[in-house]
Amino acid sequence: MIVESRFSGKRIVVTGAGRGLGFAFAERLGREGASIIIAEIDDALGTDAERKLKGQGIDARFVRTDISSETSVEAMAKIASCDCDGIHGLVTNAAWANNVGGKSYTDIPPDVFDRMLAINVRGTWLTIRAIGPRMKDGGAIVTVSSDTIYWGAPRLLHYVTSKSAIVGMTRSLARELGDRMVRVNCLLPGLTMGEATKDIPEDRWNDYAGRQILKRKQMPGDLDGVVAFLLSDDAKFITGQTLAVDGGFSLH
């Protein structure tokens, strides 16, 4: 059920929207009136996400997208913009994050390190490269990094490196797109409950929550409103910024 109309008449692309945070973002934006493009690599997840969103009265379309492929991303961007006068928003949520930790910096295979950068860094760039020229002046982009860049999570070097690059990319893009009044900001989630984190041991959850100021597990609902805010006109004079949403685990 659509409850608000802050994004009525606006089209927003959310990558990796088949599940987890991406789906939560798409659902929140759709409930506020946005037309959603679900850019997802997994056919089953993408189809199911489209069905769920449409069941709530949300205008949603699944477009299979491999963000590490220039051809795939360009095809998605063409479809996303084919029947409208421009894309209004983008959330570059898609990333490789499942089961990537546990190895020392000396034990990460070079091909795994390269794949991490190809998906998380190059994929984010390819997505913005394809969508940016099709975005309406005054639109907004939210990139997704991680609060691990602030505290240097051990045994996650390749992941933390990739997410650190997203912050630098955000700042440069904000300056490049600013002449069109297109805003680019970066969200840094903390450890969040969801499919990507379901295998994390309970003691790690407890340790993380114990070091937060707000001592409870973080849920997707703690983040979707922040994304909606950053994409909305309520944040019309905010760009090039990073915002950690992690219950006070990191303070910057």
Results as ranks from 00 to 15, higher is better:
G9P: 04
K10Y: 08
G22I: 10
F25N: 11
L29A: 11
R31H: 03
E32Y: 05
A39T: 05
A39R: 05
E40I: 13
E40D: 07
I41M: 04
D42G: 02
D43S: 14
T47L: 06
T47N: 07
D48Y: 01
K52N: 11
L53T: 03
G55W: 08
I58Y: 02
D59R: 09
A60Q: 08
V63W: 01
T65P: 08
S68M: 07
A75T: 10
K78V: 12
C82K: 15
C84F: 04
C84E: 06
G89V: 08
L90P: 03
D107L: 07
I108S: 11
I108D: 03
P109S: 12
V112F: 03
D114E: 04
R115C: 02
L117C: 00
N120I: 01
V121D: 01
V121Y: 01
W125Y: 13
I128V: 11
I128R: 01
A130S: 14
I131L: 08
G132L: 09
P133K: 08
R134L: 12
M135K: 07
K136H: 10
K136P: 06
D137E: 09
G138C: 12
G139P: 00
T148D: 01
Y150E: 03
Y150F: 10
A153H: 09
A153K: 15
P154Y: 14
P154N: 15
P154G: 13
L156W: 05
L156M: 15
H158W: 02
Y159W: 07
Y159E: 00
V160H: 03
S162Y: 01
V167A: 08
T170P: 03
A174G: 05
E176A: 15
L177T: 10
G178Y: 10
R180A: 05
R180C: 08
P189A: 15
M193A: 12
A196F: 10
D199V: 15
P201Q: 06
E202R: 11
D203V: 15
W205Y: 12
Y208K: 12
Q212I: 05
L214C: 08
K217S: 12
Q218M: 14
Q218K: 15
M219V: 15
P220D: 04
L223A: 05
D224Q: 10
D224K: 10
L230P: 04
L231K: 04
D234N: 12
A235Y: 00
I238G: 00
T242W: 02
V245M: 04
V245K: 03
F249V: 09
S250N: 13
S250K: 13
H252T: 13
